[in-house]
Design a protein around this nucleic acid. Structure first.
Lengths: 187, 187
DNA sequence: GGTCTATGTGTACACTTGTACACATGGAAT
DNA sequence: ATTCCATGTGTACAAGTGTACACATAGACC
């Protein structure tokens, strides 16, 4: 079998790098950045240790790649959910859906966000990721709401996602909807 | 006199344990939990390495002690600020003051909170700290606001504190006040 | 077939970490 | 002055880490 022209000849495991990134995110969600090592990721992905430093220059690059994917995926979903809304009530409902949905509300993603924020505070490369993530979210919101409301919503979304996930008793969706409505509808 | 020159005093440093806790919090704020080690804390506090394991059984106990102090201090300030309010407008203003003030809004404390949340997600002892911290905050708010509003405010406070600290351009206090007012004053 | 090279692997190493524990010592009790 | 021991210290060590790098090998090219 010859390789198709224009494509670089690939050996046994194409897409391995992508899989390593996914496994890394799972690892971070479960054990935190502190508990995520080359060896653990390699074992979980059933890949030799040397493959880590082959695909990623250092462990920092691994983390950066993982969090880049997280931010991109989340921002994509964010834009998609808000983009399909036309009337204000639809936008409001889209925000509620985001907060209560998997993308922002799942335990996994909230934990990953913590880890990212904690790391980004001291790492310029990661800081850039969070900055552009926030910028995309704000822009998506700004298509539907005025500037101050956009900022408030952005903050509320963050706080609600956290609380729904970490609080002892889960917050009902109706309360989430009420909160968003109060912010969106000034007196 | 009692201490030979160049030699470390062997005895009696009361309050050393407390100082170690404070230095640990500074260390975590600056380098994260991941970058905080026995040796670094010992060096920063000008204390021998052996003193670490003497005062704290293990490094987990050190972190637990540090975060316990953080949570207690914060909850105290929270209760104090809200306790002195009598009329609803005063309570609202107290909440705004908390968000924009040092206690909740300072970069240091926001970073420490991230680290605590990230750790608490996987550590039962720390989880208990965050739970009782949240419970105290909610109770303090509940003296002034009805149950759903209390929950919403709790989330909004979290989100606003985070955004004010991490966002590229600082959010004006007036926007914070507006957001709190919108939540507090349902239509 | 026979080379050659990009792609991938196994292993070794220097370094850091938490922790244990033998030992020193200041000062109270006598 | 001497004894004695709680309080505190110095040091050693096993475990785990990121990373470098010599080596293997599957397929492309002639």
């Amino acid at each position: 079998m010859t390789t198709a022209p224009g494509k670089r000849p690939r050996r046994s495991d194409p897409g391995r790098k992508e899989r390593l990134i996914d496994v890394t995110l799972d690892m971070i969600a479960e054990h935190g950045v502190a508990g995520t090592t080359h060896r653990k990721v390699a074992a979980a992905a059933d890949v030799p240790l040397g493959s880590m430093t082959y695909h990623f220059t250092g462990i920092d690059e691994l983390f950066t790649a993982a969090f880049t994917k997280l931010a991109d995926t989340t921002a994509d979903g964010f834009e998609e959910a808000l983009g399909s809304a036309n009337r204000p009530e639809e936008a409001t409902e889209a925000v509620v859906g985001l907060i209560t949905g998997e993308l922002l509300g799942s335990r996994r993603n909230v934990l990953l966000t913590y880890e990212l924020y904690a790391l980004a505070a001291r790492n310029p490369a990661l800081r850039q990721i969070t900055d552009s993530w926030m910028a995309r979210s704000r822009t998506a919101l700004a298509r539907h709401f005025d500037p101050p409301t956009t900022v408030m919503l952005d903050a509320l979304i963050e706080g609600l996602a956290i609380h729904r996930t970490l609080a002892l008793n889960p917050m009902p969706n109706s309360v989430v909807r009420d909160a968003v409505t109060r912010i969106v509808t000034p007196r």
